[in-house]
Design a protein around this nucleic acid. Structure first.
Length: 427
RNA sequence: GGAGAGGUGGCUGAGCGGUUGAAAGCGGCUCCCUGCUAAGGAGUUAUAGGGGUAACCCUAUCGGGGGUUCGAAUCCCCCCCUCUCCGCCA
């Protein structure tokens, strides 16, 4: 959520930053207008309340000092109180309604891109930052797409998943399931080793949580909702992990908070019909190890860089070739101020595919989720900065392993770092 | 799902419908004192919104939302959550 005060004070500057997103036009004028009205009413109302409070106190005192409750003076005060009440009854709903409207509008505005985010209109203007592992790019000749080799080896079963659920689901079978577990354990162990605290959170989350991390209200159609309850299947562990601290005031010395979690993630993938219809790339349910950080504003840039490196370390350990892309302002996600995508090499398609997205939200989510911190001794509070990134998407990593580690004889070499987990060298 | 109990400030815990934003204790912070020293004393200690150059002022907040009243932490209604017992269940 954007800071209303900031909008009020620097509307042209904010407008300019919003315009960098290109994708859509955002108009601040309505918010400014409603805010103006709201403040007028608030001032007015609070003055009436002040008088009303005063009357209440006066009556109390007089009765205590022996005045008759039926006395002329008190009756007059009561009448004034009553008339104030009528006026307040008119102003209060107006004030509330305006506040709600302003809030609702504010929730629709995306985050301001960081100054350092490259300008651009869309995906095509993203910037490649670096590439890693060219020497590991396998000879593409004859490499089967992961879903084919997976079915051939009997470790991926898409067909029967359709029967159980629908398309875009998978059964991992035998070593397939074991490989998934190995990847999860390996990734968690790696991140725990560099200082992340593991959490196994609920994967059903309520509306407030999804609003806090900005999946709602804009992306309701992207999430699965439980009909009977105010619960949604979480699209990413970012939601429960960030909302862990919703509404809290943290002590400065608790920061930075770094969490990792493995959870299944659920996405409706509405509007992606016909895209990636085969394989593990775009499923309704997939596993992911997520990294989330809550940090002081002055540390967020460095923590972001470190987060990207934590995710990269997994790909490097797995010896999977990848590149790092910095998203341009036009391609930035709704809540992100700055974002790096990690794209892994998929030899069957001779292309890089997103496998991790590492974003810095600045105070955008913290403002929505009301997560603040306090320096001991100092007055007041500040919003934390929130960051998150995949470390990594498991299914896509599995796809990358099945392809990059494919041997000419139709088997898969197990990446060295996974061998202790799988207790196998070849699949 | 049924029955009961309860939700008050960083924590513990008072609170009769009337200067209660809220006693007391603990904790935190500041200062003072010091041959009773793992001590003593004084003060201070919530968040948000609005107004003001500022000192400061006003408003809201005792789980959430409504209501009664001149006035609600206190009374009434609805909801949420926690705990105990029972039922059901991985």
């Amino acid at each position: 959520m954007l800071d209303l005060k900031l909008i009020r004070q620097n509307s042209t500057q904010i407008q300019e930053l919003l315009d960098r997103r290109k994708a859509k036009e955002y108009d601040l004028s309505l918010v400014l207008e409603l805010d103006q009205k709201h403040r007028e009413i608030e001032t007015n109302r609070s003055q009436l309340s002040a008088r009303s409070n005063e009357i209440g106190k006066t009556i109390g005192q007089k009765i205590k000092n022996g005045s008759s409750p039926q006395g002329e003076e008190i009756v007059a005060l009561k009448e004034e109180g009553n008339s104030l009440k009528t006026q307040l009854a008119e102003l209060e709903p107006q004030e509330k309604e305006l506040k709600a409207k302003i809030n609702q509008l504010l929730l629709q505005f995306p985050n301001l891109p960081a100054d350092s985010s490259p300008l651009g209109k869309d995906e095509s203007e993203n910037v490649e930052v670096r590439r890693w592992g060219d020497e590991y790019i396998p000879e593409s000749e004859g490499i089967l797409p992961h879903w084919e080799i997976g079915e051939q080896l009997g470790i991926l079963d898409f067909k029967r998943a359709v029967k159980i659920a629908q398309s875009r689901f998978v059964n991992l079978v035998g070593v397939g399931a074991a490989l998934e577990r190995a990847l999860i354990s390996f990734m968690l162990d790696s991140q725990i080793a560099v200082g992340y605290l593991e959490v196994m959170p609920p994967v059903l989350v309520n509306t407030e949580s999804l609003t806090g991390t900005s999946q709602l209200p804009k992306f309701a159609e992207e999430s699965f909702k439980c009909g009977e309850d105010d619960l949604w299947l979480t699209p990413t562990a970012e939601v429960p992990l960030t909302n862990l601290y919703r509404g809290e005031i943290l002590e400065a010395d608790q920061l930075p908070i770094r969490h990792c979690a493995h959870t299944p993630c659920f996405r409706r993938e509405a509007g992606s019909y016909g895209k990636d219809t085969r394989g593990l790339i775009r499923l309704h349910q997939f596993n992911k190890v997520e990294l989330v950080k809550l940090v002081k504003p002055e540390d967020s840039e460095a923590e972001h860089q470190a987060l990207v490196q934590n995710a990269e370390a997994i790909l490097q350990a797995l010896k999977l070739p990848y590149r790092v892309i910095e998203l341009c302002t036009g391609d930035l996600g709704f809540g992100a101020a700055k974002c790096f995508d990690l794209e892994v090499w998929l030899p069957s398609a001779s292309t890089y595919r997103e496998i991790s997205s590492c974003s810095n939200f600045h105070d955008f989510q913290a403002r929505r989720a009301n997560i603040r911190f306090k320096e001991t001794g100092k007055k007041g509070t500040q919003y934390v900065h929130t960051l998150n990134g995949s470390g990594l998407a498991i299914g896509r990593t599995m796809a990358a392993v099945l392809e990059n580690y494919q041997l000419p004889n139709g088997t898969i070499k197990v990446p060295e770092v996974l061998q202790p987990y799988l207790k196998k060298e070849v699949i």
